[in-house]
Design a binder for these strands. Sequence first.
RNA 1: GGAGGUGUCGCCUAGCCCGGUUUAUGGCGCCCGCCUGCUAAGCGGGUUGAGGGUAAUCCCCUCUCGCGGGUUCAAAUCCCGCCACCUCCGCCA
Length: 426
Amino acid sequence: MIDPRLLRDDPDSLRAAQEKRGLSPEVVDRALEADAARRAAIADFERLRGEQKQLGKLIPKAQGEEKAELLARTKALAADVKTAEAAQGEAESDWRDAIYAIPNPAAEQSPAGGEDDYVVLSEHGTPRDFAAEGFEPRDHVELGRILGAIDVERGAKVSGSRFYYLTGAGADLEFALVNMAMDQARAAGFTTMVPPTLVKPRAMEGTGFLGQAADDVYRIEGQDTYLVGTSEVPLAAYHSDEILDGETLPRRYVAFSPCFRKEAGSHGKDTRGIIRVHWFDKVEMFSYTTLEEAAAEHDRLLGWETEWLDKLELAYRVIDVAAGDLGLSAQRKFDCEAWVPTQGRYRELTSTSNCTDFQTRRLDIRGRFDGEVKPIATLNGTLVAIPRTIVAILETHQQADGSVRVPKALQPYLQGREVLEPVTGG
RNA sequence: GGAGGUGUCGCCUAGCCCGGUUUAUGGCGCCCGCCUGCUAAGCGGGUUGAGGGUAAUCCCCUCUCGCGGGUUCAAAUCCCGCCACCUCCGCCA
């Protein structure tokens, strides 16, 4: 959630932030009204409650007629207190709903507009020129079949569309990537984690995935729990209701977890292959730090992502995602998009977001600094999302005979293999 | 899944049976001050968090004894439901 003080002190900045995202400023006015109503309800309740407590203290000392009279008065008052308390509760929940609907205002540097209004920050490597090399590149589905690495037919047979099996070299590739990613993160000082991926509503809502994004989330039938779409959720909720010692910041965690996404509303998009799937495994970086340090930490996360992509010898670019495409929680977001040869375009491989204090306010996470309790920031960044990374590696490093060269840095994690060779049968 | 037990302001703990004088006791830790060649000890004070009033870091008020309801003029205390943990039984990778 946004800082309630900001709503009261500078609603115009929030209206402007809504405009920048291409959204209506109406939610701001609704929240302002709810805030006023809430404060009035609080004052009302507290006045009555205070009176009740004052009178209540006199009762044990009173005797006879005086006592009877006090009891009569407080009895009447008790009903009013109850009514006022209920009204306050309602006003609080209206206010909460209103303020929860306001997204994190985008950073000043974030470009205004929607999905297509991103700004390219940098380009790394050069897309391979297969025409010059004299052969037509195969797409990852074909390569996956040749290498015995990806089985989408049987994935669909067993689990439905957008599911797959990683087999043989494909499965080996996943473990290699995960281990390599974990090693990189560990070396950078991250604490490794394997988090739960089935979570309560609090964790989901706290990270901003139950608003408009709820359509994309799997809910367990008959149970108030959700499958997470990213380990950002359990990593953010990890410290919920805690006050962290400021001395221990930044706290950096790296988690391996499966991710589940309904991909509602993306019918017809990326139907071929494993670019867009309902389940995939991912290694995710997560930082808790001070608000002052958040932007610098964001740059560091991006640095670890580019270091990773460089080691995989991929061609990619970094974009500054536009305000309207940030999602509820992020204040700024960088996507790393790798070149996918058979698509002739860049596709998102990793992404890093600065959520400032938006999630920590919802999850009641704060820091203590020289005795003072203050809000802190959370940031997240992908190190490796398995299927898309496999797509980029296979397509980028393929050779004319259908084999795939293994990037040098990855070789030690693949039993020293330098090339993935085609297999026969299936 | 069944039975029993436990959940108090950082940690430990008193209070709960018998509701009100509890602004929740005491210890440890921590902070400030005093004292003391230094250190330790000793003495005094402070030490949950949130929200509202306010220009306000002073002050006043409300909420906070796992969570949510209920009873009552009044709930840490009585009643109901839920959650977590522990012990035992059952089941199970």
